[in-house]
C-alpha cells in the first residue's frame, strides 16, 4: 500500500464513522489523515507482529479527538478487523471518540484531555534514552492543544534531556474548537517558539507526503535535540465545504447532500489502486 492510498482510506472511513455515529471531529480527522498515513505506512516500525517488541516505534495521538483516524489506519494495517470501525461511538464499543488503548492492539495510550499524550510520549522517549533503545516515539499534537501549559513543560524537558529520538508532529490546521488559533491564543511565531525551546524544527506542508517523509527521515539525523515537525494542514482537508469552516469541528456529515457531497469529492480524488471498502461491501 502507498501512503496516499492509506490516507484516502482514513478519510473515507472517517466520513463513514462520523456519519454512522453522529460523531464529532471529522475536520480534525481529515486534517491529520496524511500525517497518520505516512507514519503508519512508511516511517514507524510498528505492525501487528511486533506489538510486544520493546524496540518497536511508538505512535501517540495526543490530540485524541481525531481517534477515528488512528482506528482507521490500524484497521487497514490489519491490527484489527475493518468491520469493527462501524462500532465507533456505539453502545458497548471499545472504539471511543477519543483514542483508547484498552483492548485495541496498536494503540499505546489513551488520550482525550489535551496536553497529556505528548508528555506521556516524552516519558516513553526518555525510556529509550535511558535504556539506549533504538525506537522512536512520535507524538501527534494539535495546534490548539499547544494552548496547554503542559505542552511547554514537555518542550523544556525534552530539550533538557536531549531526547533526539522524540518527534512531535503538530497538525497545524490553524483552527481550534471555537475559532482560529490566531483569534484565540496566537501561536505565532510558532516555529521560532520551538526553536527557542531548543528543538530541531521542520516547517512543512502537512498534506504533502514527500515532505512528511523527508522531514520524518531527516529527524533521525538529530543527535541531541528533539524534533518538531510543524505540519501545515487544512482543517477538513479533502472535502471542500468542510475546509477551514469552524462548523465542522463538531458537526457530523448528515444524510443527504453533506454525506453524498463528501463522498463525491473523495471519489473524485481517489488514488489509483484503492477500492472504496463500503462500495465493495454493497456489491
Amino acid at each position: 500500500m502507498k501512503s496516499e492510498q492509506l490516507a484516502w482510506l482514513i478519510r473515507r472511513h472517517g466520513i463513514e464513522m462520523t456519519h454512522l455515529s453522529h460523531g464529532s471531529h471529522i475536520a480534525s480527522i481529515l486534517s491529520v489523515a496524511d500525517i497518520v498515513a505516512v507514519l503508519y505506512n512508511d516511517i514507524a516500525n510498528i505492525s501487528p507482529e511486533n506489538l510486544n517488541d520493546e524496540n518497536r516505534d511508538r505512535i501517540v495521538l495526543s490530540k485524541g479527538h481525531a481517534g477515528a483516524a488512528i482506528y482507521a489506519a490500524l484497521a487497514e494495517k490489519s491490527f484489527f478487523d475493518v468491520e469493527e470501525l462501524k462500532t465507533h461511538y456505539a453502545d458497548g464499543s471499545r472504539l471511543s471518540g477519543h483514542v483508547s488503548h484498552k483492548g485495541i492492539p496498536g494503540v499505546e495510550i489513551s488520550t482525550g484531555s489535551l496536553g497529556h499524550g505528548a508528555c506521556m510520549a516524552c516519558g516513553i522517549a526518555l525510556n529509550a534514552k535511558i535504556n539506549k533503545k533504538p525506537y522512536y516515539t512520535y507524538a501527534i499534537v494539535g495546534d490548539g492543544e499547544c494552548d496547554e501549559g503542559s505542552i511547554w513543560e514537555m518542550a523544556l524537558f525534552a530539550n533538557q534531556f536531549k531526547l533526539n529520538q522524540f518527534v512531535v508532529i503538530v497538525d497545524h490546521n490553524k483552527m481550534q474548537s471555537l475559532d482560529y488559533c490566531e483569534n484565540t491564543l496566537s501561536l505565532a511565531p510558532f516555529a521560532k517558539k520551538w526553536e527557542a525551546f531548543g528543538w530541531n524544527v521542520f516547517d512543512i506542508d502537512g498534506h504533502n507526503h514527500d515532505e512528511l517523509k523527508k522531514a520524518l527521515n531527516d529527524a533521525k539525523q538529530s543527535l541531541d535535540k528533539p524534533t518538531v515537525i510543524i505540519a501545515n494542514t487544512v482543517k477538513g482537508k479533502g472535502v471542500s465545504f468542510m475546509e477551514s469552516d469552524i462548523l465542522w469541528h463538531y458537526r457530523f456529515p448528515h444524510e443527504g447532500e453533506e454525506y453524498d457531497g463528501a463522498l463525491n469529492e473523495l471519489h473524485a480524488s481517489m488514488p489509483n489502486g484503492v477500492v472504496d471498502p463500503y462500495e465493495e461491501a454493497k456489491k
Binding site: 520493546e54 523544556l156 534531556f161
Partner: peptide
C-alpha cells in the same frame, strides 16, 4: 542514574512518570 529532576512542572512530571512506568 535513577533520579530525574523534571523541574517545577508537575503536570509533565506526572505524565513523564506514567510514560516511563508503561515501559516497565
Amino acid at each position: 542514574e535513577q533520579i530525574i529532576n523534571a523541574g517545577i512542572a508537575e503536570q509533565n512530571m506526572t505524565s513523564i512518570a506514567a510514560g516511563l512506568a508503561m515501559q516497565g
